[in-house]
Design a protein around this nucleic acid. Sequence first.
DNA 1: CTGTTAGCGCGTTCAA
DNA 2: TTGAACGCGCTAACAG
Lengths: 336, 336
Amino acid sequence: MKRPATHGVTLADVARMAGVSEITASRVMRDRGPIRAETRDKVLRAVAATGYVRNGLAGSLASARSNLVGVILPSHTNNVFPEVMAGIGQALSRSGYQPVVGVTDYDPATEEALVRSLLAWKPAAMILTGLEHTRETRRMLETASIRVAEIMDIDNRPIDLAIGFSHLEAGRASARHLLARGYRRIGYVGHDLDADLRAAARLKGLVDQLGEAGAPLERRHLTGGASSVQRGRSGLGALLAQHPDCDVVVFSNDDMAVGGVFHAMAEGMDVPGRLGLFGCNGLDIGQALPKPLSTLRANRQRIGEIAVERIVMDDGPETGPAIIDVGFEIVAGATA
Amino acid sequence: MKRPATHGVTLADVARMAGVSEITASRVMRDRGPIRAETRDKVLRAVAATGYVRNGLAGSLASARSNLVGVILPSHTNNVFPEVMAGIGQALSRSGYQPVVGVTDYDPATEEALVRSLLAWKPAAMILTGLEHTRETRRMLETASIRVAEIMDIDNRPIDLAIGFSHLEAGRASARHLLARGYRRIGYVGHDLDADLRAAARLKGLVDQLGEAGAPLERRHLTGGASSVQRGRSGLGALLAQHPDCDVVVFSNDDMAVGGVFHAMAEGMDVPGRLGLFGCNGLDIGQALPKPLSTLRANRQRIGEIAVERIVMDDGPETGPAIIDVGFEIVAGATA
DNA sequence: CTGTTAGCGCGTTCAA
DNA sequence: TTGAACGCGCTAACAG
C-alpha cells in the first residue's frame, strides 16, 4: 500500500486532488446545482482514489439538517415492534434516512432521557410510541420544531401526528364478536398492564362493552411481566384452575393467546367446542396454527410506513395535530 | 409564553445566563474535570431555564468521537435478529451509546451502501452480520480505524472481532444427534439459502456429516423466499408429498420447524413416532409447544451483548483479529 | 477550578 | 458553471 490511508480524508483532500474548490466537490457529492460532466468525473475519480467518506457530522452541522430519524419503541421482545420497525426501516431507507433507535421498556422517564439524547442529533423527525409522555418530553418535542409521529394509538390528542387505531374500540369490537358468537362466561388472561397502556385500553373496552351487555368480565388472570407464549400458556392454566366454567378466554395479545392454544392442546381440550380462545394482533404465527387463531388484526408494518411517509417525505402545509386511523379487523379464525 | 423558545438555544446562551464561559458550561454538561458545586448549579439552572439541548453534531465534530454505533442486520422478519438487536440495544444503552440501524435484506451491495452512510456519522464502532462482505466494504471498515464486530458466524477470518458460533459445526451436530436417535431417512425443509449464508452453512454441515455416516440427505424441499411459520408448514407438506418415507425432517430454522409441527398436528401425524421434527435456534415459541421442539440453540441476545461489551466498552490492547465462540447446544425436546 | 484560542469539516450565501 | 469567505456549536489544548 502506498498510503496508510488510515484516517481522515476530507473534502479538501478530494478537491485538491481533483483540482477544484471544496464547494465544487461538495456539490458533486450531493448532486446539487449544475456541474460540468468533466468536472464531476474528476471529483468522482478523486473520491474513489482517496476512499473519501463524507463526514455527516460536519455536513449536518453546517446545513442544520440531518437525515437521521429518532425512533423510540417500548420493547424489543413484544413481537409487534419488530414489525413496525420493519415498516419504518423500509420506508426510511427508500428515502435515504437512517433510524437512530431507542427502547423505553415502557418507562416514561426512560423515554424522556431518550428523547433528549436523540434530539442532540438534530434528527429530521421523531417517531415515538403512544400518546402518553412526560410533560418535559412533550416540551422538548414541541420546542424542537421537527415533525413528530406518535404511533400505535389514537385515543388521545397527538403532538403533531398520530397513526394507529383505537385500542378502546378494539376491545369493544372483540367483546361484540364474542357476544355475537353466543359466549357469555368470558375470561381474560393478560400480562403486566401497568406498563402496556394499549393492552390496558383494550381490556377497558372489553370490560365496558361486556358490562353494558350484561355479561361482566369477572374471570381474570394477570401474570405480571412481559407478554410471552410461555406466560400465556401458564396463565390459561391458572385462570381455568380458578374459573373452570369459562366458555371463552380473551388474551392480552397473540403471543399470550398462542400459549393458550398450546395449553389447550396439551390438555386435550376441545377448541372452540369446550373453550373458545381469542387473541389480539394477527401475528403470522397465530394464523399458521392448525386451527387459525381468532384475533383482531391491525397492519403494524403499514403503521410504520405511513408514519415515515407522512413526517419525513411530506411537506404539505401544517394543519395542526392530525390523526390517521388505520383501523383493525376481526379475524374470525377457528378458535372463537 | 414569554418566549417562543422555538429553536436553537446554544451552549453560549446557557453560559451567558450562568455567567460562566462556554467551556465551563460544556464541562458541566459532560461531567468533565473539577467544577465547583456552586458553578455547576448555576449552569444547571440555566440549562433548565432555557431548555437547552446539547447539539451532538457539533460536539462530535469537535471531539472527533461520537456515541453512535452502526448496526447492520440482514432482516427484520427473521425472528433471530430482533433478539440480537435486543442484546445490542440493552448493552448499548447501559453504556450511553445509541444504535443507528440498517437492514441489508441479505444483499452485500446494500450492505456496502449502508456501511458507507453509517460511517459518515463517525460511529464509535460498527456491528455487522456475518463474515462475507464486498471488498469495498472491508476496505472502508479497515480504513475507518474503528472497532468492528461481525456477529453470528465464526467460520471465517474476521476484520477485527467475530462473535457467534460455527454454523457448519451446528449442522454436523444436528446430524449426529439424529443419527444417534436412530433416524436414517432424513429430510430437509428450507427457505431461500442463496441469501441466508448461515442457514446454507448449517445445511452443508448436515449434508457432510450424514454423507460420511452413509445416510445421505436426498430428501429436500426448498420453498424460496424468507423463512416463516407458514412456509415451514406448507414446505413440510410438499416434502412429504414427494418423499413420504422420511422418518425425520430438519428445518432451516425454528420458524420453519414450528410450521412443520403445525402441519403434523393438522394431519394428525404422530410426532415423533411417525415423524421426527428438528429445528434450529431455540426460539421461545418452539419451547412453548405442547411438545417442546427438538432444536439447536445459541444465545443470540448474548451474542449482541458480547459484541457491545467487547467493542465499545473494552479498551484493552489490540491483539489482531479475534474470534469468540459462544457455542450452541442441542435441545433434546420432544419432537426428535 | 476556570478561561482563551483555535479549529473540527462541511454547506450557505453571496459574487463572479 | 465555479469559487471565497464565513460560520454552524462545540471541545481540545493549553494557560492561569
